[in-house]
Write a protein that binds this DNA or RNA. Structure first.
Length: 506
RNA sequence: GUCUUGUUAGCUCAGCUGGUAGAGCACGUCACUUUUAAUGAUGUGGCCGAUGGUUCGAAUCCAUCACAGGACACCA
């Protein structure tokens, strides 16, 4: 039984006693007329009053009891609403006869949501409080809250029962408020630039736009499988073909892959596409975007991230090849051709998969020796064409693409490029992916001939970018697990034996 | 996927080389009308993650499983 615990039984009994005495333990009759934050602001002048109180004022506040100190005929109660914490002074003789002794002291406790009316005053210790003349229960909590001092620290419980985490940990609420602001500011930033927010399908007939394994679901009416999208890219580009010149979408992507500190099966990204622009313009708008975020989030431009300090006023830009030597410390002669890279990697005890091409090997050098050293925001540009299947080639050097990735605190935050809009080239790149798939690469891109057909009608020269919102929020809130910036991160179900057996049979 | 560390009261944690469980908070009872994790007294509370094994005896040792944290590999 779910409520067999004796503490819960005790509390159920208290709820019953309240009800019998005419105090509905689940009352819907809230008369709150201010929030804690407003109360504290409006009455801050009471601190300077000679009497340290103003009995002519009267407010009704509501909140959850977080702390309760009963001292005989008077008590101190700390209640918390979304805006903050307020101390209430409750004295027996200010409440209706017998209520304090028989109801308040006996049946109201930490975790309950109450409503209190009274006037502002300042205690002997100098805390602006509320002197109660009325108190009623709004909602009885029949499960006890975790311990008041240590709160709840078990990560498993924090993620599985996020509501408890939010009740107990104010800084967690802060993190998610920041996340909400980041998304809201992002939307406003792009809208103000004239971008149109769009919604493209979450269920795709072909999972395209990235190399990743999709989740599969089934559409009964059509009798066909659908794939939860791994990226919105190909649909957003269809909109550019259609004549929209600046579009963005902030939404979820789904990838059927591993979970760890930086990966959740569903994650949020913004992708935006901007016609008649190049990746150079995207570098500018990205800098501007960060400046905008920091300004409106009121953050210092030098932010701590773990042991690191990230200076968001120090944006760097460096071509990938150059970064290998200047940042990665790889000797220039070891970057020039396949054989010397392989020899260098082997000399550093790094295993090299057979069949890697020049561009992939350069990418390998970058991942091994450069990425983690990019602390301040750094645009790595000029990616090899082999590892940039959807990016436009440089007109000057066909071996590299007009692309950048933005790295901050040793981690990739954004990926952007001038888009490939040559339908014949796109078709042959898809065909290349099909061959890779036939050779066993199960993450190779699917052929999307509908998308190629769209390109065949002409897509204006366009630059597009994706930014991982979860990782961005991690950076801004100094969180080191993606689970700490997702309200409800993916968790394995806690299965009972029957379910386990069924899973094994399936 | 691999390695590694956890899982003991509602919560936070002790429990040594095996001898059938402890603390603090919370909760119950009592005292207390300006406390700040209030205080003092007193009491209740546990199938020691699950299943097997070793043993006279297992929270403790071994194996398997489940879930979680961390690291590595792949990916955003």
């Amino acid at each position: 039984m779910i409520f067999e615990n004796k503490f819960i039984q005790q509390r159920i009994e208290k709820a019953k006693l309240l009800k019998e005495a005419g105090h509905n333990p689940y009352s819907n009759d809230s008369k709150r007329n201010t929030t804690v934050e407003k109360y504290l602001n409006v009455n801050s002048d009471v601190v300077d009053m000679e009497e340290k109180r103003d009995e002519k004022r009267h407010y009704i506040v509501s909140g959850r009891i977080k702390l309760l100190r009963i001292m005989g005929k008077a008590s101190f109660v700390k209640i918390e609403d979304e805006s903050g914490m307020l101390q209430i002074y409750v004295a027996r003789d200010n409440l209706p006869k017998d209520f304090y002794n028989t109801m308040f002291k006996k049946n109201i406790e930490v975790g309950d949501i109450i409503e209190v009316g009274g006037y502002p005053f300042v205690t002997g210790k100098g805390e602006l409080s509320l002197h109660a003349d009325s108190l009623s229960i709004l909602t009885k909590a029949i499960s006890p809250l975790p311990e008041k001092f240590h709160g709840i620290t078990d990560k498993e419980i924090r993620y599985r029962k996020r509501y408890l985490d939010l009740i107990m940990n104010a800084e967690v609420r802060k993190t998610f408020q920041t996340r909400s602001k980041v998304i809201s500011l992002t939307r406003r930033f792009f809208e103000d630039k004239g971008f149109l927010e769009v919604e493209t399908p979450m269920m795709h007939p072909i999972a395209g736009g990235a190399n990743a394994k999709p989740f599969v679901t089934h559409h009964n009416a059509l009798g066909i499988d659908r794939f939860l999208r791994i990226a919105p890219e190909l649909y957003l580009k269809r909109l550019i073909v259609g004549g929209f010149e600046a579009v963005f979408e902030i939404n979820r992507n789904f990838r059927n892959e591993g979970m760890d500190a930086t990966h959740n099966p569903e994650f949020t990204s913004i992708e935006f596409y901007w016609a008649y622009k190049t990746y150079k313009d995207l570098i500018d708008i990205t800098k501007e975007y960060f400046q905008y975020l920091f300004e409106h989030l009121d953050l210092p431009t030098v932010l701590p991230y773990g042991d690191m300090e990230v200076n968001f006023e120090n944006f760097q830009e460096i071509p990938l090849i150059e970064s290998l030597t200047t940042i990665g410390g790889v000797p220039a002669e070891s970057c020039n051709d396949k054989e010397s890279i392989i020899a260098y990697l082997k000399s550093k005890n790094i295993s090299v998969k057979p069949g890697m091409n020049f561009g992939q090997l350069q990418g390998e050098l970058f991942d091994e020796f450069v990425e983690e050293k990019l602390i301040d925001p750094t645009f790595i540009t000029e990616y090899p064409v082999e590892i940039s299947p959807l990016a436009r080639r440089s007109d000057e050097n066909p071996a590299i693409t007009e692309r950048f990735e933005l790295f901050i605190a040793g981690r990739e935050i954004a990926n952007a490029f001038s888009e490939l809009n040559d339908p014949i080239d796109q078709l042959s790149r898809f065909e290349g992916q099909m061959e890779a798939k036939d050779c066993g690469d199960d993450e190779a891109h699917e052929m999307d001939s509908d998308f190629v057909e769209a390109l065949s009608y002409g897509m204006a020269p366009t630059a597009g970018q994706g930014i991982g919102i979860d990782r961005l929020v991690m950076l801004l809130t100094n969180e080191h697990s993606i689970r700490d910036v997702l309200l409800f991160p993916a968790m394995k179900p806690v299965s009972n034996e029957e379910q386990t057996t069924q899973d094994e049979e399936n």
